[in-house]
Amino acid sequence: MQTKNAAEIEPIVGRYIHLQLGGRDNRVYYEESVLAENTGIPFVCLHTAGADGRQFRHLMTDGDITRNFRVIAFDLPWHGKSLPPIGYHEEEYRLTTEGYVEAITAFCRGLGLERPVVMGCSMGGRVVLELALHHSEELRAVIGLEASDYQEPWYDTEWLHRPDVHGGEVCSALISGLVAPQSPDEYRWETLWGYLSSGPGVFKGDLHFYRQDSDYRDRSAQIDTDRCPMFLLTGEYDFSCTPEDTERTGRSISGSEVTIMKKLGHFPMSENPAHFRSYLLPVLRKILTMP
């Protein structure tokens, strides 16, 4: 009898946690690397709008990251393998700042995470500004990927959820241009699959937070990076959250560190993981030296 596994099994495990959000029970899915054996610094990753935590799978199998960090990614309710709450069929999904922060803090507290590093991309990069403003005492540092305090819209979100246009197809085709041309086809299409397979109206509902409920231009200067160090990394091909948006945001937040990433777009961790790690690892090394 062969004792070795007959096939490759990745060192990633998934579980469900029940969170009370907005007074309702939510069955939330999360994945984490078992390479870390729960000893590293908690490193919570927030996916982009209309997608799910699979975007961070490459970080979970990267020994140079998991050696010191416990990489964890959860799917927001309505996303990925997290169900929408009971009664979803009678409502329009709309993410708010309040609801988003409630989900993140409830998840971190639910798992008993002590001063995690939180890294979010796109809308996840926006919400780390809110976390740094109001929850700095609970955090070790924040990393905003494709993050800014505001950005100009570039299409009408009414196209995203209507009966005469396939939602997954149009969401995917719209955001496909945010992937850098140099990113490998394999990972480009894996990234796009998250949008192709997203639930109806979910991307549009997330953009409610992103476009209508999170303009931080009047508040970002209040962020104290002595209490919560902040790193902002944006791909040069991101025309949604542009490098200029991130640089402007960085200028308003004293002590924040801005990096513009060459040959990357709006989804650095999933569109070109091998290239992205060359930007992420130096940031994580800095965080390791921080108290």
Binding site: E152, W154, Y155, G177, P181, Q182, E236, Y237, F239
Partner: peptide, 14 residues
């Protein structure tokens, strides 16, 4: 490999 900003019609429109 178009330069940033020229790689997508929506980027060009923006």
């Amino acid at each position: 490999f178009p330069e940033p900003g020229w790689h997508d019609i929506f980027s060009m429109a923006k």
